[in-house]
Amino acid sequence: MRTVEGKVVVLGSQGVGKTSMIVRYVGKMFNHHINPTIGASFFTCKVNLEEARVKLQVWDTAGQERFRSMAPMYYRSANAALLVFDLTQYNTFTAIKTWVNELRRNIEGPMVLVLVGNKSDLENQRKVDPEEGRKYAVNIGATYYETSALQNEGIEQVFLAIAIGLAKLSSGSRDLMTSLRVYDSVSSGLSSPDMPLSPSSEESTTDKSIAFAIQERPPACC
């Protein structure tokens, strides 16, 4: 089986729940005492699809404005961007547009985009209409999800979508794939510097159809 190794950058305003989502997925829990990220944190995890094993190296960036200038360091080499907003704060949705423009201007290769509205458990405080989110996602060639890191809703699908997107990317034209690493499983043990202490989680393929938008449209930043 093929192994695909991709870099994922998580972007979005402060407090939207980026770290909470990742900790929910990787650590299988919700931590109420997460501090604002300082700089960036690094996670790894694995997703097993039918056709490939996908290893994700996730850069969880800090949303605070003082770290804004460091973002390029993380998205420049990324194969996928997870764009997170808080669906109870409209301005965090607006901020996504700034991120997308910035990515468009600075990223040359293809990139998997996933747009996520987090905190769906706060339905009564919702400020972003799901239709608006979905429309915008289609517009930029992203898939759209709404999640609750608190109640563990939709999180698995988000990471699955990223994995499927990366697997698709890697089977596309190879010469474009400068930074996405692909190798056969026989040699994988040798060629991949695995991070044994980092948290990892095994996922198996479920419904592939959720990644439809990635296939429908070419990724945004080609």
């Binding site: 770290t19 990742i22 997460i34 300082i38 700089g39 960036a40 944190s41 969880d60």
Partner: peptide, 17 residues
């Protein structure tokens, strides 16, 4: 002070300016 006030360092490797 930074370490003592940042529980989150416990959950992942960080790259902190």
């Amino acid at each position: 002070n930074l370490v003592d006030s940042s529980e989150s360092f416990k959950s992942a490797e960080s790259w902190t300016p």
